[in-house]
């Protein structure tokens, strides 16, 4: 099953409704699809194409540009070890060696049990807390090689499953605009004059 479920179609339609052009919703919808399936399948892209009214080739064209979308199954947990300057200065290469050794895989690989994928990442915006890594985009700061070992042990023992959702789930909170509070989309062709409140007088 890689088409969006009925519940997710409802979420997808709500997301699409916030944009003047349905295609703008594509990246959030690809995330939704990845949240459901763990990765992006051809069938999923065909379904998203229907939802935003483009071809599935256009969906793939967009999706394949972005690092976070995976087109083959990855581990339940994806560990990204940063290797850009600040982390490199503080020993990130050693972390990668330790992780490769501990997991018995090379960067880019997935453990045989399908639990963990290891990746080399570029700057994760936590440079003062170097070296850092992310597990499914949740941070670990000032990581030591010993921390890598215990992180892997904890993931294997299922100790972090409350804190870290399976790969694909990003934010656990979604935006919801209540029907009576939202303004609705302002389409580029619909409004050709200044908004009524933009009239040179105070709004309050």
């Amino acid at each position: 099953m890689s088409r969006l479920s009925d519940a997710n179609v409802a979420i997808a339609k709500e997301i699409i409704s916030r944009y003047p052009r349905p295609k703008s919703a594509l990246i959030p919808l690809l995330h939704l699809s990845q949240e459901q399936n763990g990765y992006i399948t051809n069938e999923a892209m065909a379904h998203l194409a229907e939802l935003v009214d483009v071809t599935s080739a256009e969906v793939y064209g967009t999706a394949s540009f972005y690092e976070m979308f995976k087109f083959e199954p990855v581990g339940k947990y994806v560990i990204n070890i940063c290797g850009t300057l600040s982390c490199a200065l503080m020993g990130s290469e050693e972390l990668m060696h330790r992780a490769e050794h501990k997991l018995g895989i090379k960067a880019g690989g997935t453990t045989a049990d399908g639990l963990i994928t290891l990746e080399h990442a570029e700057c994760q915006a936590a440079c003062t807390e170097a070296p850092c890594l992310q597990v499914n985009y949740r941070y670990r700061f000032r990581v030591t090689p010993a921390d890598v070992d215990s992180l892997v042990d904890d993931l294997r023992a299922g100790k972090l499953s409350d804190e870290i959702p399976a790969h694909g789930t990003l934010a656990k909170v979604r935006q919801h605009i209540p029907a009576d509070r939202g303004v609705g989309v302002v389409a580029p062709e619909a409004a050709t004059t200044a908004p009524s409140w933009f009239d040179g007088k105070a709004a309050l």
Binding site: I27, H31, P178, A203
Partner: peptide
């Protein structure tokens, strides 16, 4: 939104605007 700081008639005024959260993919 619930408290009236974003959306329709912000703070009870004539001013209305939506803020839509969007996120990238790396």
């Amino acid at each position: 939104y619930a408290a009236g700081y974003v959306g329709k008639n912000i703070l009870g005024s004539k001013f209305s605007v939506d803020v839509v959260l969007h996120w990238g993919a790396g």
